[in-house]
């Protein structure tokens, strides 16, 4: 069981959260000419590192806010959590 510290609610069990994937991918700018390659990068390509991973979680059975979580993908240690719009280190 993961315990995730929600910046809005405090420490909660993973059962209250839904996973949202890699938080470092950036959607291409709107109103700009976007190549197929750029869409491919955004929609499909992922680094999926072993070790530190910055990812999105949705506190869906809690405050319903999206948050960012820095977690180790091989030990599941959670280093730090952020609000969705907070800058990460």
């Amino acid at each position: 069981m993961l315990y995730i510290f929600c910046p809005h609610c405090g420490s909660r069990s993973q059962n209250e959260f839904a996973y949202g994937g890699d938080a470092t991918v950036k959607r291409p700018e709107l109103n700009k000419e976007i190549s197929d390659q750029e869409w491919n990068n955004f929609v499909y390509l992922r680094k999926s590192p072993r070790g530190k991973h910055l990812e999105l979680w949705h506190h869906i059975s809690g405050c319903r806010q999206w948050i960012k979580v820095e977690r180790d993908t091989s030990t599941h240690e959670i280093f730090k959590t952020y609000k969705a719009d907070e800058l990460t280190e």
Binding site: Q14, D22, R50, T73, T75, H76
Partner: peptide, 11 residues
């Protein structure tokens, strides 16, 4: 969620 741990979680 992304994982390389080779062991699962109970939930």
């Amino acid at each position: 969620y992304n994982s390389y741990s080779q062991r699962g979680n109970l939930p």
